[in-house]
Write a protein that binds this DNA or RNA. Sequence first.
DNA 1: CGCCATTTGATTGTGCACAACTGAATTGTG
DNA 2: CACAATTCAGTTGTGCACAATCAAATGGCG
Lengths: 163, 163
Amino acid sequence: MTTELSRDTAPEEDWLRLDRQICFSLHAASRAFNGVYRVLLKELGLTYPQYLVMLVLWEHGETPVKKLGEHLRLDSGTLSPLLKRLEAAGLVRRERSTRDERSVQVALTDEGAALRERAVLVPRRIMSATGFSLEEIRDLHIRLDRLTTALDTAALEETPGRR
Amino acid sequence: MTTELSRDTAPEEDWLRLDRQICFSLHAASRAFNGVYRVLLKELGLTYPQYLVMLVLWEHGETPVKKLGEHLRLDSGTLSPLLKRLEAAGLVRRERSTRDERSVQVALTDEGAALRERAVLVPRRIMSATGFSLEEIRDLHIRLDRLTTALDTAALEETPGRR
DNA sequence: CGCCATTTGATTGTGCACAACTGAATTGTG
DNA sequence: CACAATTCAGTTGTGCACAATCAAATGGCG
């Protein structure tokens, strides 16, 4: 429990400031990314989470909603309305599986598949917007994944009997 | 413009996969953080963004809405309802400035100020949840801020006549 | 077969993020 | 003073995140 903290002049008070900077940086970076994607994706008619769904479909093809949720770590409360909007935009089709009537398959329409041609330009524009090198991005990516894994397991331990 | 990429075997196609991992990692890490805060802050009756607002108020005392927005990079569309909920919870007071009737001052109630006593425990529990050392957190913090700055200026350049 | 636990998607409700707009108050300029 | 531009909070509308709940379908078991 009691980790060492003797150094770093932390009289309990300053922790509130330090903390703000840590969690807040991530929060801000996430929204900043979101902002850049918003601009780049507007011309494709996609939001950022919709773009993530399309990425999965472009990579894996027809996918049940359940699998989409696992890939993106999103539940049906987020995915259901999002997928309906993508369907309304004519980019995907949703149809119940004939084998398991509980499952809904999400597939690309021709229009959705064609959109990939235009989306392929996005990643590099994002890359250059970050000003980071490939090395740095890879490194950051590894750290963030490690962070996410640690936070997820910690959250599970904090909430024993949930989910 | 054309950064070097000759190496790394990237035939345009793979960029969509690589890209998903970069933006997605940040997205996921942000939500993972949110999840841990959600658990820890539940007993304080705060959401994560509400906690951020309280941090600013604990640090700076009475603050106009405008300043809160600058500190947190949030606009009034987000802050107005959030502050009303904090007011309904009895943690803050909102009152129009007498000098400038356009400005609304947000101040802590006694209850809001007292909550700080219990909140002071949160940062360390978050720290330990990350499994990161102080060094690592500081390093990550610096990288994220650099990323945010770069993304913000890039977004501004992409949308010339906005904001 | 009948019954029950599990799986799966959908729905509802709360809260945040942000764009666009409104309206009041203030400030600048002639 | 009159009038235009600016500043500031609030409101509205769209979309995402997630908890809680529901209903239908499936599969196992007696």
